[in-house]
Amino acid sequence: MPEAAQKLSADKREIVSFTIHDQAFCIDIGHVLEIRGWTPTTALPHAPDYVNGLMNLRGTVLPVLDMSQRLGLGKAEPSARHVIIIVRPDDMTVGFLVEAVSDILTVSNDEMTPTPDVNSAETKSFVEGIFTHGDQLIRALDVRSIMPAQSDIGTQ
């Protein structure tokens, strides 16, 4: 793991990698506020299927997104081993429900290869590129596009 104080040059960035259904994903660490263990959430009426529910983060009410469902990998069955990554890309704070957080890595931007032309619509819209780390492919997610779309909420 890199030291927190390490200065990153412009083309380097730190990422948090996590797994969902044995696939590795990552998001920019700048968006991550903290990582928490799974706590039961409160179901939301009329919510899109990828919204797992609401959680209480020290008094703040925030929605938890089922990343598995959001990425088109099927509904997650949350257990005590699941992890919620609290992200705040802009003014909205949400939790990402993932299976496990694996690592914090420093990668350089030119290591990122563009998303291959696959069929899955979710993959295409949410994955901005792919890093290769050892023998592992890490899909870099565009956090902003994953955030719940206003149009999804309240109309279903």
Partner: peptide, 27 residues
């Protein structure tokens, strides 16, 4: 009362949320 608009959006039929004694959220 905890507003929902800040991190989510207004939900039809729901005015706001609150946190109960056990830390769970109730709508």
């Amino acid at each position: 009362i905890k507003g929902l608009e800040q991190n989510y959006q207004q939900i039809p039929g729901i005015a706001a949320a609150t946190i109960l004694g056990d830390g769970r959220i109730a709508l």
